Computed example of a mutant assay.
Amino acid sequence: MPDSLTTNLAATLHATRTDRGLSVNALAERSGVSRAMIAKIERGDVQPTAVLLGRLTAALGLTLSELFSRTEVDTPRLARVV
């Protein structure tokens, strides 16, 4: 079972791809990442490497920082109680 970061990352990548009107095939062509790997990432079946994320974000017109920022929007953060 994937952790919450993997699940949120998968959802963020999928939403960004669809918001830009790209099919999995189009993203695969732009990024050089296989359709099968993109599908696995978007399902949360695998944890992508930094290299794969770099290729995907470049093809989507994002930086890795932007991707993680979007991913963490709904992820609760730990806070120290004072």
Rank of each mutant, 00 (worst) to 15 (best):
P2M: 02
D3M: 05
D3N: 09
S4P: 04
N8M: 10
A10P: 03
A11K: 08
A11H: 07
A11I: 07
L13T: 08
L13R: 07
L13W: 10
A15C: 07
T16N: 13
T18W: 05
T18E: 09
G21V: 15
G21D: 09
L22C: 07
S23N: 06
S23M: 06
V24R: 14
N25G: 10
A26N: 08
A28F: 13
R30T: 04
S31K: 09
S31F: 14
V33H: 00
S34G: 15
M37N: 14
I38Q: 01
I38E: 02
I38F: 01
A39D: 04
I41P: 00
E42I: 01
E42Q: 05
R43K: 14
G44R: 03
D45M: 05
P48I: 05
P48Q: 00
A50P: 01
A50V: 15
A50T: 15
L52E: 08
L53H: 08
L53V: 10
L53M: 10
G54H: 08
R55T: 02
L56M: 08
A58Q: 07
A59E: 00
L60Q: 00
L60S: 00
L62M: 08
T63N: 03
T63F: 04
S65E: 10
E66F: 07
E66I: 08
L67P: 03
L67S: 02
F68S: 08
F68W: 09
F68R: 14
F68M: 15
S69Q: 07
S69G: 13
S69W: 09
T71K: 01
E72C: 06
E72V: 05
E72S: 06
V73P: 00
D74R: 13
P76Q: 12
P76E: 09
R77T: 12
R77G: 02
R77K: 10
A79I: 14
A79V: 15
V81D: 01
V82Y: 06
